[in-house]
Simulated assay, not measured.
Amino acid sequence: MLPGRGTPLPFDSRQPFVDMIVHQVEKAIVGKRESIELAVIAFLCGGHMLLEDVPGVGKTMLVRALAKTTGVTFKRIQCTPDLLPSDVTGVSVFNQQTGRFEFRPGPIMAGILLADEMNRASPKTQSALLEAMEERQVTVDGETYRLPEPFMLLATQNPIEHEGTYPLPEAQLDRFLLKIRLGYPEERHEVEMLGRLSERSPLDDVKTVLLREEWVRLQQEARHVHIDEAVKQYIVRLTSATRTHKDVALGASPRASLGLMRAAQTKAFCSGRTYVVPDDVKSLAVAALAHRLVLQPEARYTGKTADSIVNQLLTAVSVPAAQTAAGGSR
């Protein structure tokens, strides 16, 4: 666990700690360090995360491994077309002995909720998550219930099979801090995976390295990482450029600017720095912005993607000078 529990960690102590989380997750997911590090950033940032990829590459395994490294409560829902909102949020049940309705909490009342194959849930059930994702609360029968602190939704979806699925609306996609893809492993990593899975589940080797209180404290400390005005302006120029791009019908929202800023602060925090540099922003821009863009039909027909447009803007938008971005003498 964290040294000096109960007191802030010096910045040079955090990099080994982040490596420890990544190391635990790598016991279950082989050869995907970059994706795992993005997941850890979303995790420590307290933002929701969407994993989109083809079946069988380890999306669910990544979420379960990441959740196991913490001491918070973890719940999972398997999304299907017949899943009801009350199956997620909970339901009020009449108690004949007391003559009153009592709230029976659903799986959403957990620190980490895995919504597996989220795009298979009906729009009505998907909408039940909107309030939880943004306001950390749910409303059932007119009563509002606060979610545990912290709360994080980790969702997976399959972009290949569209039969029986309901695409996530833009309002819901905008609430995900990062969208992560895993992709197929290299052959040597797949061979290593076969060796690990021959006798036991890879999750058996993943250990808890973070208590709930430590997770909350690290999230709070990450938000105190200095971000210079020049870097804030750079973030806004990036998001503003998506709104005026000729191939984009709907650009990134102000929520995207805020999410990119907090993710960049967390990346700097994990790297042991007390300030954000433009490279932090650039390395997270695709994961933080691309899933929020809606392309023009003609752009999609010509094979353009949201990822390629964000990468194009990263080249076109001017980057602040390193000394200015670091806050001068900081």
Rank of each mutant, 00 (worst) to 15 (best):
L211A: 14
K304Y: 05
P159N: 10
Y184G: 01
G251L: 08
P159E: 07
P297M: 14
D19M: 08
N311Y: 00
C45S: 15
H224L: 14
S257W: 09
L314C: 10
R120L: 09
F17M: 13
K207S: 15
R255S: 14
P3E: 13
P123D: 07
L147F: 08
P320N: 06
R64F: 00
P297L: 10
Q97V: 03
D205A: 14
H291T: 09
E190N: 10
E134H: 14
A299W: 05
S271A: 13
A306P: 03
Y184F: 15
D279G: 02
K59R: 02
P202G: 12
L238C: 10
Q219C: 12
D280F: 02
L203W: 12
G106H: 02
K68H: 07
A264S: 15
S257Q: 06
F11H: 09
V72R: 02
M193H: 01
S257C: 07
Y145W: 12
T239N: 10
N158I: 01
Q265E: 10
P159C: 10
A299M: 06
V281L: 12
E135C: 07
L83F: 04
E131W: 11
C270H: 04
A263P: 03
L238W: 03
V319P: 01
M133A: 07
P202K: 11
A39D: 00
M20K: 13
T70Q: 03
E117T: 05
T156M: 00
F176L: 05
L153E: 09
M1D: 07
G251E: 03
T324Q: 15
L84G: 08
S271Y: 06
I36T: 04
Q219L: 09
R237H: 12
F43C: 03
A299D: 04
V248F: 07
R100H: 13
V231C: 11
T80W: 01
A67M: 01
R181V: 05
A249Y: 12
A115Q: 02
S253W: 08
E143T: 15
Q233M: 05
E34D: 13
E52Y: 00
E117K: 03
R217N: 15
A249F: 08
R300S: 14
K282W: 06
V317D: 11
G106Q: 06
A222F: 00
M193P: 00
L182K: 00
G56Q: 10
E214P: 13
P150W: 02
T70G: 04
P167S: 10
G106P: 08
E143W: 03
T73D: 11
R14K: 15
P202F: 08
R196T: 11
A256F: 01
A264T: 00
N119L: 09
G47F: 00
T274V: 08
E213V: 05
